[in-house]
Nucleic acid binder design. Structure first.
Lengths: 123, 123
DNA sequence: CTGTATCCTTGTTGATACTG
DNA sequence: CAGTATCAACAAGGATACAG
């Protein structure tokens, strides 16, 4: 399994403007990070650079609570914990794909509309 | 065109638990209200019972800014204003449908996972 | 009828520091 | 390594009253 691309969620990417959100702010991104297989806490922090451990832990708890991910702790030193998508969690991949498809097709028009609106507002 | 069903967004409906959101809290519901054609401000307030005029106005401004709806004011007494989906706004209907489809299929499992989680937490 | 103006509560996100 | 504790900042959402 490939390591996660540190730039997979570039904040400069207009996808951060998408009006469609899964769960809380980071939920959708975490799910995307888990599509290829289980990941460790610190692995998830790589692409999610701007998330603090506190918020990432909260996000993972919420996903666990809703049955989207499982948490597996191994009794080792140093500790190792792995998060993995459940079958229910995988069902989210389909609507997420639909939303990403929408964004790739229509986000440019949205951005253009915003520009037009702003220039009208300042006029 | 049919009047909007006052109960189309029953707060008791589990769809309010859906982890998928379009725009801000009310954005997706407004878009759904506009699918059949243009609606007036006060018409929208019927199914969206719990929204204050301030928040509905903000929601509509945001949708207008992003190019999803148009606002048409008629110079009459009393004033009449109509909101209508743009072609860009209609493109949102597809991912919204995908999300609703997901919810109708998987929300029960989510709710069940929550119950199981809570009973474990309290144990 | 269609909003705006104010004020306020609350929830969410984050910074920083610390622990098993 | 994988978190938790504490505090702070901010923005979303809402209550209420009023205006064009």
């Amino acid at each position: 399994m490939q390591p996660l691309d540190p730039d997979m969620f570039d904040p400069a990417c207009p996808s951060s403007v998408s009006p469609i959100r899964i769960g809380d702010k980071w939920g959708g991104m975490v799910i995307l990070c888990l599509t290829q297989g289980p990941r460790r806490f610190s692995e998830l922090r790589v692409p999610l650079r701007r998330v603090t451990p506190k918020v990432l832990a909260e996000t993972l708890r919420a996903l666990e609570r809703d049955g989207f991910v499982t948490r597996t702790a191994y009794a080792e030193i140093p500790p190792r914990v792995e998060y993995e998508l459940t079958p229910l969690g995988r069902t989210l991949l389909e609507p997420i794909a639909a939303c990403r498809e929408w964004a790739s097709r229509n986000l440019p028009a949205l951005l253009q509309a915003r520009e037009a609106y702003e220039s009208r507002a300042s006029a």
